[in-house]
Write a protein that binds this DNA or RNA. Structure first.
Length: 430
RNA sequence: CGGAGCGUAGCGCAGUCUGGUAGCGCACCAGUCUGGGGGACUGGGGGUCGUGGGUUCGAAUCCCGCCGCUCCGACCA
């Protein structure tokens, strides 16, 4: 893509309402624009990141055996009256009335809808377990939206729901999801830690929150160093994995247990800040019972399936990654979710040699390359590439170009290499 | 939901106290020079001063209502 023809409205100055790094940088890098309080438009680069994250989430959900579907954003109030949550949910729910005075709502979550859908088609224990999910926009009318996409009112969430014949089955689903989540965050390129959590609004008695470590996180977190290194993920046997995840110490300040903490050796203790990017719940028969979802068992009698729900804040993850990975100059994208793998910086636009090299690079990189072909000075191009955070910058200046060489800069480390065009391409694409 | 602010050009702001025909920097357009860390100069374009009402000869400025947005706290993927 050519920068000169892109809708990437970067800003030199910080909009006054952006308080934290991710909000500031996402605005400055031209990824998002606020359209109303807590409601954002995703511009081309922002959408690229959002889509890449969603795709990783999708692949890991599929790998865990979940099935993708898509439920609507607008739901009927009647559905929520069945579970009793229409009145219980309170003002966070955006309620809408249509032209026929029918009561609707913009879904803040989908337990009711998925339970109704599965209830209408699954009648026998033989058809369980079921593990559907979707990636859809949600709306929660937060009292106080802030921090850009970290606490928006409208947000993109992956939510999966498990239906099992018994507790043992539900626990299997829970463990599978925990593994899928850890793999997802690892692939994205961030450290996230599962922590025991309250079940809140959803209800139930087993729940973990996943926190991305970032200095600006909203919660204080305490954890064992094992989570830092990724050692905790080496285990591939799901039972052993789950045991590790639930026995190695990790807790938010709300659930911090000083007695257990004191037993951890000093050198393994880590304190930091975390941003919650996911939560998983087991809540038993709460919805199957209240919504009358019973199936026939092997003995011919009816029973209520055991359920759980599993959320990942996809849009929030974008902000969380920026919080975790930025410096004074801008964003430092992990390779897996960067909007572009590399920026091509033509330091002498209009020079036949640099232009030709840049055109070659642009052709070869395809959708992974962003070609800064503007007639700007070198400094402006450097600053903007650093701001946007491309993992690689391919710097094409007249000096090197004469020798057929370009300079390859790694954003994360600042490391620079003088390479031939082909070697630079191989490194970026390899 | 309690408390506190802010709305003036795309962005950042001054002007409001003390009423007199709206300004600065960046960005944008044209041109010249420049050319490896947001360069310089010259010339331009862009505003119902959030909105409705009131006071006044005259309102960005004073008064009242409304809307929007932000910050602190309590709550949350």
């Amino acid at each position: 893509m050519r920068l000169s023809q892109s809708l990437i409205p970067t800003l030199k100055e910080t909009p006054s309402d952006a308080q934290i790094a991710s909000h500031r940088l996402m605005l400055r890098a031209g990824m998002i624009r606020q359209m109303a309080s807590g409601i954002y438009a995703w511009l081309p680069t922002g959408l690229r990141v959002l889509s890449k994250i969603a795709q990783i989430v999708r692949e890991e959900q599929d790998a865990a055996g979940a099935q993708e579907m898509l439920m609507p954003t607008i739901q009927s109030a009647d559905l929520w009256r069945e579970s009793g949550r229409y009145d219980a949910y309170g003002k966070e729910m955006l309620r809408i009335t249509d032209r026929h005075e029918r009561e609707l709502l913009y879904g803040p979550t989908n337990e009711e809808m998925i339970t109704a859908l599965v209830r209408d088609s699954i009648k026998s224990y033989r058809d369980l377990p079921q593990l559907p999910y979707h990636i859809q926009w949600k709306f929660r009318d937060e009292v106080r939206p802030r921090f850009g996409v970290l606490r928006g009112r409208e947000f993109l969430m992956k939510d999966a729901y498990s239906f099992d014949v018994d507790y043992a089955g539900a626990l299997v689903a829970y463990k599978k999801m925990m593994l899928a989540y850890m793999r997802t965050f690892q692939r994205i390129g961030i450290t996230a830690i599962p922590m025991r959590a309250d079940t809140g609004q959803i209800g139930g008695d087993l729940s973990h929150e996943f926190h991305v470590l970032a200095p600006t996180g909203e919660s204080g977190v305490f954890y064992d160093a094992a989570f830092e290194t990724g050692d905790a993920l080496v285990e591939t046997d799901i039972e052993k994995f789950y045991e590790q995840m639930t026995t190695i110490y990790a807790a938010t300040d709300e659930k911090h247990d000083t007695a257990l903490w004191d037993k951890i050796p000093d050198e393994r203790r880590r304190e930091g800040r975390g941003i919650e990017v996911g939560q998983i719940f087991y809540f038993g028969k709460k919805y199957s019972e209240s919504m009358g979802f019973a199936v026939t068992g092997a003995d011919g009698s009816k029973f209520f399936p055991e359920m759980g729900s599993y959320g990942i804040g996809v849009s929030r993850l974008v902000g969380a990654i920026v919080e975790a990975r930025h410096d004074d100059a801008g964003i430092i994208w992990p390779d897996a979710v960067a909007p572009f793998k590399a920026a091509i910086l033509n330091l002498r636009q209009g020079d036949a040699t640099t232009d030709a090299i840049c055109e070659t690079l642009h052709d070869q990189l395809g959708a992974d390359g962003l070609y800064d072909d503007r007639d700007e000075r070198a400094g402006a191009k450097f600053a903007e590439a650093d701001l946007m955070g491309h993992p690689w910058q391919i710097i094409v200046g007249p000096r090197g170009a004469a020798k057929g060489q370009v300079e390859l800069k790694r954003r994360a480390t600042g490391e620079r290499l003088e390479l031939s065009v082909q070697d630079a391409l191989a490194k970026v694409l390899g």
